[in-house]
Design a binder for these strands. Structure first.
Lengths: 214, 214, 214, 214
DNA sequence: TATGAATGAGCATTCATTCAT
DNA sequence: GATGAATGAATGCTCATTCAT
């Protein structure tokens, strides 16, 4: 018999709570989110939230972990084999920046975590492995570029990765204050394209060997 | 009659409330900060907070404005006249990055504002003028560099400024999550020096004209 | 098929719930005890508690009844035949006081019942018969003592019994507040022996006929 | 201007909360009492309860302390100078028992404290001094009696006091369960008179010297 | 018999804010 | 200007209990 409202649906209930919580936490932060708003949005009652996640903080950690999961999944799915080094860098950067642009709530969560000095992130243990595949990929690209003489030697892949991510992160995360300060709307498509071109140029001109310059 | 405790000190009370509020808002955000904690920390009672700032939000806006004021003051005090263009860029970057490093609470406030989609920032109207002197300064430096042939043409000063700030912003603001993800402590002095060297190199190699490269 | 965990054990489950409930109710009272704590301590789930005992109150009554059962069993097992009256009184008193000392949770339950004005006790009808054998025994002893001239006439056995029990009850039930008020630890063995000697003396000197005194 | 409802009355509000709390705690115990019921009964709101007493437990302790205060006041007001020793004992006992009879809520509180193993009583520091005046008084009476040869030697005043109090305490505190068990209503005036006569007789016959007996 | 899932009312407590002096 | 007293609406969380399997 088909029913509109499924009465018993543990997995569904859990999932709906997690989705609702993700939205509330990204919108209002840990302190600002309200458990009753989460329960209502999830179509259940507050009690179930505690049944599945023990506490508001427990739910917050679960949201963080679910987010990391999706992020890691996506990061490891990029395929850049066979591309010339510079082009690989370009595409890797675009891929990461696109992800950040499309998932601003993810950045809100990260910012919230930094407000809490990473307290809740520490509880989860698999963060480091999340990004290592991308950094490995980047390392390979840099090595290929150095081998062909296109890139200079001695580039630290992790610092380079952090810089690359930061470029995209900053303009997405700070889009509202940037508009107030600069008068420019960096959420705008054209604006984003312009500045990301600058960023790619910057990354690549930095990689170019000194001999090639003078 | 002489008393140990000065009862009436309007300016002092106002200032102490503002200082206490700054600390609480930067630590816990708008939602997380507690008015009674602010009052206690300021050595006064909650009522005075409403007397001077109307509401919690009003106090929050006042904190934002006070912060902008200090930031603007500092930004306009840099003197780079007489320096060769590349050196001027280097010193400007270092100056800004040092400020960010030394004022992480300022970044917390900005992040909080972005969480609120810049709602409270809009109320204050003088934001844009805050950064324009620095951007003007940067524009002059870029023009000087272009004139001497050191820098390429057609660089957008504002986008360049945003990129430069973002580089410093990201590693300070995200220091906690970066440590969880990368295993590196970017709050560390040596680490910060290393990556800021990379950033300056990146900015300058981007500015170098194409003719100079091939 | 043999399994390590026996799944079905109705009597065991019922018993374990009752034991866990006894502990929780004596520790925290009816209002303070938590059904989920009882279920957990009994190694089952809350639902079974309702299956066997209908409600929290039903379980509470069941605990009361089980306690009475044990108490009655014990009370009727004292054998004092053949002892001289005074010695019989002495041994009866010691027997009762020892029981009280060894079952302070029983006193907690009784106190709880008095807090509820005996509401739940009334439901059980066999209370009165519980103590009547002991009172009968006491009546016989008193009659024997009167016959030999050792005890005076006209002693009410029930009032005497109540007084005797009260002496032991008070110092066990109130051991914590007594320590706070008097500085003496009446839970201490030596202390208990001293005061119970006083109590026995008191009971016996009361029983002694007036003629014997002057 | 005369108003029915006094708007500002800090002392009154505090007092009314304390009175309402006393009633609720004595009726339902610490766990069973409800803060909103207390607030309503006090004609104020829950917030004020926390304003004046910090927490439910804080209020509970305040109730305990207020009760002790009244008890101590009363205890120290008995005047027995000039009475013959036996009469003094009789009147002291009656005075204490009357107090217990008239303040059964006080006994409920004490029982509750014993359920909590005296946890909250410990916080208050002046308990011991509360009863010492009465014990001193008792000691004097006993000494006077010994001097005249009416009382035997070597009576411990504190143990004697504890026994005396216990006699009255038990039949008041356990009046409901006693009725269920014995069928007698010890709250009844006649009943109480009968048994307290027994108790006084018991105390006095215990005090009488051995020489006087045989 | 047994158990995981679900519920709604109620819980102690805290919140930002306002009143009266 | 300054302060203690007062408020009502939340807030996160727990309660005893019932439903569905």
């Amino acid at each position: 018999m088909s029913e509109l409202r499924v009465k018993r649906d543990p997995e569904g209930t859990r999932r709906r709570i997690l989705e609702a919580a993700t939205e509330q936490f990204t919108k209002f932060g840990l302190a600002g989110a309200r458990v009753d708003a989460i329960a209502t949005a999830a179509g259940t009652n507050e009690r179930m939230l505690y049944y599945y996640f023990t506490s508001k903080e427990g739910l917050y950690v679960a949201v963080l972990e679910a987010m990391y999961g999706k992020f890691a999944e996506r990061e490891s799915s990029v395929d850049l084999t066979g591309l010339p080094p510079a082009e690989a860098i370009r595409q890797l950067a675009q891929s990461i920046w696109t992800y950040l642009r499309e998932n601003p709530q993810w950045l809100s969560l990260i910012n919230n975590e930094n407000l809490h000095e990473g307290r809740y992130l520490e509880r989860s243990s698999t963060m480091r492995e999340t990004i290592s595949p991308v950094v490995d990929l980047l390392r390979t690209i840099l090595q290929r570029g150095t081998a062909t003489g296109e890139f200079r030697e001695g580039i630290d892949p992790l610092d380079f990765y952090v810089t690359l991510v930061g470029m995209g992160y900053y303009i997405v995360s700070n889009r509202y204050t940037l508009e107030a300060f600069t008068g420019r709307n960096y959420a705008d498509h054209v604006r984003q394209k312009t500045i990301s071109t600058m960023h790619v140029d910057m990354l690549l001109s930095y990689l170019r060997p000194a001999d090639n310059r003078a």
